[in-house]
Design a protein around this nucleic acid. Sequence first.
DNA 1: CAGTCCTTGCCGGCC
DNA 2: GCAAGGACTG
Length: 782
Amino acid sequence: MSSFDESDAFEGASLSARAMAARPMPYLDDLNPEQRAAVEALEGPVLMLAGAGTGKTKALTTRIVHLLNTGTARPNEILAVTFTNKAAREMKMRVGRTLGEAIEGMPWLGTFHSICVKLLRRHAELVDLKSNFTILDTDDQIRLLKQLIRAAGIDDKRWPARALAGVIDNWKNRAWTPDNVPAGEAGAFDGKGVALYKQYQIRLRELNAVDFGDLLLHMVTIFQSHEDILAQYQRWFRYILVDEYQDTNVAQYLWLRLLAGGHKNICCVGDDDQSIYGWRGAEVGNILRFEKDFPGATVIRLEQNYRSTPHILAAAGGVIAGNKGRLGKELWTEAPEGEKVRLIGHWDGEEEARWIGEEIEAMQRGTRGMRAFGLDDMAILVRASHQMRAFEDRFLTIGLPYRVIGGPRFYERMEIRDAMAYFRLVVSPSDDLAFERIVNTPKRGLGDKAQQTIQRIARENGVSLLDGAALAVEQGAIKGKGAAALGKLVVDLSRWGRMTGDADLSHMELAEIILDESGYTEMWQNDKTPEAPGRLENLKELVKALEQFENLGGFLEHVSLIMDNESEEQGEKVSIMTLHAAKGLEFPAVFLPGWEDGLFPSQRSMDESGLKGVEEERRLAYVGITRAEEICTISFAGNRRVYGQWQSQMPSRFIDELPEEHVEVLTPPDLYGGGYGAAGGMGQSGLEQMAAEANVYNSPGWRRMQSRAGERPLSQPRESKSSVIDAQAISSHTMGERVFHQKFGYGAVIGIEGDKLEIDFEKAGVKKVVARFVTGADDVPF
DNA sequence: CAGTCCTTGCCGGCC
DNA sequence: GCAAGGACTG
């Protein structure tokens, strides 16, 4: 921005900035006026409302650079919080690059959780923990809760541990300790939620463990009850920056407000339209109330978009306009018009995957006057991870290289978690959860009964499970071959524990010894399932990953917080990921499949949160569309397999919200007598029908007409053309009617639920089936 | 106690 | 369609 000269740069700049004016600030020239204002308003509260693709990360990192470069703050005086490790890494990298590698690290740039771990280790004793506490992941958490539920004599089938975990997480996100849970929540989990929460916290304390929610909750508790400690950190962290502020939950919000309470030098960046984590406690309200909490705050809007074409922005804007209570931003761009957003409907989910696969190959070559795109330039963004399968299957078939982002993470794999349980037990022998995990892995002949004995002895003596096991062996309480194996395990573990102090032995070698001598490696070597080699490979990788750490303990700490797929494999590949994982990313060409009501917007979200749920789904749609730079392709299918059953789908309500003038409707391949499965079965009238449907996809009234016409599926299933299934039979079934199903045979209708029937089959028993696949028994043509 | 069959419930994303 | 968990059997 050459229109800004030096004197402009000093407007509103701090004294210290003036003092450092001698230093060049070339980085400021890269910014537009709004970004520059956000960077230079160093003192006092600042709220940066930054739309998608408006250079928010740039503004944020430049702000850090400016703080450092002007000498306003030293690296360790800046607290910069992000949500993901990826964002933290990126920010670190960009600060370093702009500054010319000069920073000696930013110790307080990281995720909420990683920063809280650091703080909590220093003050653990204030919440009755030791500073070497372990951090439970979701798996451990569920197992622990299950034990508590069973111990309370509650049927854990009707009241699953997962549900309780959800309730407790929710409370923690709102910064409610067991004593603070409001009376209105008392009914949670069959009225026993609060009591179980209390027990859970006691148990965590006994285990010297915390869960993710505790990291923040404990710190908020400490800050609230120890003014001196809070004051110390308020002085220490002189400047606070927060990324993705719209995603903060109440606990995070309180934490920030406490820390910023003195100087109020807090800069929050967010976009209320991209708030997509309400389900995990994020409060858009935090961004909406910023000006109330920090009176006199500078509010800066970044609205110039540097990412997408006008058509894409207009389509996204049209969708998000349906939400109420927005802060309101209007994105604009100087980019050339480009392609309209492309919309296409398909017969079913498999065909959608097939078409996208082909389209990707075509776009690689350059098609329809578009430029050629590399595979790295293209991404498929799905609503739910199970949608990925169809694409993986298809891409494997046609040999199209792809990468799944955010799939099953390395550290969540069974073999890795097992191996880490061994490491944990070696480092901290009282880690009961780790003990439970590996005591019979590999098989040592220690089943339920033996484990109960160990539990009992440990409890009676008030010792850890491992010590309890040692006692059990001494007392001869465990019989048979299990006794010897258990004895060996106990001895081995203490031996490995002593070896951690051995200076001649690297922790990598120790890790290998543990995995070998415990028989764990051998277990997988003897396993003949196809996954076994991959698991051994992963174990090798695990040992390799240890290299970057000083000892096993340091590694375990890292792993509990860094759960993302680090392995950035090389090579040109199409990316497949969820919409949630895509936030913050951008691609020249984006595919958005599965825009069908129930899938997107997700039924679950609507059931749980009603209109609020739909609005959050709409923001997710907005995030999806705004990931695209040049080409955005939205698609839906008329039929989709859900839980292995075919279901007819209605196009998403969001499709109706796309402004017509920015959308181009593509023709489904079937219209050309398509070479696949259609097998010439489609007659002329079928073609006309599909063509007619294709032409009205873009009419905003189309969906409404469809719904008025009843629950008519987008198109009849292909099977109706050639098989015994009579499409006309959809309409009416009556209770008690005798019907025929191709797979299950004859049966009687015992329930009707929309388009699904409950049928008591003579051979197959009671099943729920889609009405379309059932005919009246008399209609069977053989 | 481990392996196999069968039933059941489920598929929302992250630190 | 799949994985987890229970019942049953060797």
